[in-house]
Computed example of a mutant assay.
Amino acid sequence: MKTLLLTGATGFLGGAALEKLLKDNQGVNYLILVRAENVQQGLNRIRANMEKFNINKTTLDKLTPENILLGDLSEPTHFLSDTRINTVTHVVNCAAVASFGNNPLIWKVNVEGTLAFAQRMAQVKGLKRFLHVGTAMSCAPEPGSLVAESAEFEETAEHLVEYTRSKSTIEQLMRQSCPQLPLVIARPSIVVGHTRLGCQPSSSIFWVFSMALMLRKFMCSLQDNIDVIPVDYCADALVMLLNCETLDNDVYHISAGEESSVSFADIDRAIAAALEKPPVGDHYAQVSYEALLQMRRQLKDIFGPCNERLMLKAMRLYGSFAMLNVRFSNEKILKLGMPKPPRFTDYIACCVQSTRGLSIPQQMVVDFK
């Protein structure tokens, strides 16, 4: 039987991965890293997150206090001495500070804590796989490109946010300092929503599209493409990578790829259809950030009560990503037998429905924690 150490299970992607594992009823002995004051509180945090995925009580009851490993990647020494770690056969490391803000914990958790964790797991004799979740954006892609799956990084690459820099750095450090670690890296592209639940588990990033269409202007063109996948597809791919006995590669994109990426015009039409309104279409204008900056006094009229400074920061950051117009090759995961990903527009109506009544400022909190 596998003994799986899962991190990040109180988050969006880690929660979706645990949902997949629990619903598949796989023969797994779980050890779940949770930040909490005591074991019961940790278990309650896991259960609360799983409820966002509509998991029934019977399935949730499979998790008990014995499955909880109390700890925090910002202070890894507190849990790395737990003797249960020596029995672990598989790791799925979803934990990270995924904020696009200037959270001081980004480097401490994503690089320093994760490296200490990887070094400890490299000492576990029975470990068969250490599946680390990175991000496709960690390579700082060239605008307009179809990005290949490669372990190579440009050392001089300029990152738009500290988060992607941290994810690039930790990949390189794990390879350098833990050559014996059975490391496989999964790099999801932009994870938005859930095919059945929409934004119920998390509104992360979906609000950006709604914000741009409410403004009727943004930094990207409607003809630009974006590589978006739902969280449940990403979780399915992670479980496949976890369970494959042998893998030919150690880096896999989990992405929409060239075929399933969508244009912003496609997104405009799909959101409009879900709202039963006409698309923005010809009323949309591609503008510079400076033009958005000049709208500062209008933001509260458009979005309601909001932090204008944070709204403008979000526009600058996400506008810069949107302008990249990149797609990420997904050939390797498809060759393993993973089905083609759904297009964002296939399930966007679920995202619209699940965010009705929520303002843009309310939705964006999760990305600037």
Rank of each mutant, 00 (worst) to 15 (best):
V111H: 02
R327A: 11
N249D: 15
L115I: 13
T10L: 03
V262W: 03
D72R: 06
I360R: 07
A186C: 11
I348N: 02
C351Y: 02
I68Q: 02
V228F: 12
V88I: 14
L334R: 13
R316H: 13
L69W: 13
H78K: 15
V365T: 13
P104Y: 11
A285M: 14
I68D: 02
L312N: 04
S261H: 10
A237Q: 07
R297F: 12
P143N: 02
R316Q: 15
L60I: 12
I226H: 04
M240Q: 14
E112H: 09
S359Q: 06
L247R: 09
A48C: 07
A273F: 09
N44V: 04
K108D: 11
G8I: 08
F206A: 05
P201M: 12
S81L: 12
I360G: 00
L6K: 05
N86M: 01
S260E: 04
L238D: 05
V287W: 06
I32K: 01
T164M: 02
E290I: 00
E149P: 00
S320R: 10
G11A: 07
V191H: 03
P361K: 06
R356P: 03
P143L: 06
S74P: 00
D232T: 03
A118N: 10
G8W: 09
F328S: 08
N249P: 01
T58C: 01
S203F: 05
K332G: 02
A186E: 07
C139M: 13
D268M: 03
I170D: 00
M137R: 04
L63K: 03
A212W: 05
Q353Y: 06
E75R: 15
V192F: 03
L80Y: 04
E171W: 09
F53W: 15
K340Q: 13
E51R: 15
I185L: 14
S189E: 05
L115N: 09
I85S: 04
T169G: 05
K300E: 15
E19F: 02
V39M: 12
L292M: 14
C178I: 10
I333L: 02
W107C: 04
Y163K: 10
F53G: 00
L173Q: 14
M174N: 08
M50R: 09
N243V: 05
A48P: 01
E155G: 10
I348C: 07
L247H: 09
E276A: 12
N44P: 02
F153I: 13
V109E: 09
S138Y: 03
M219C: 08
T89R: 06
A151R: 14
M315F: 15
P179G: 07
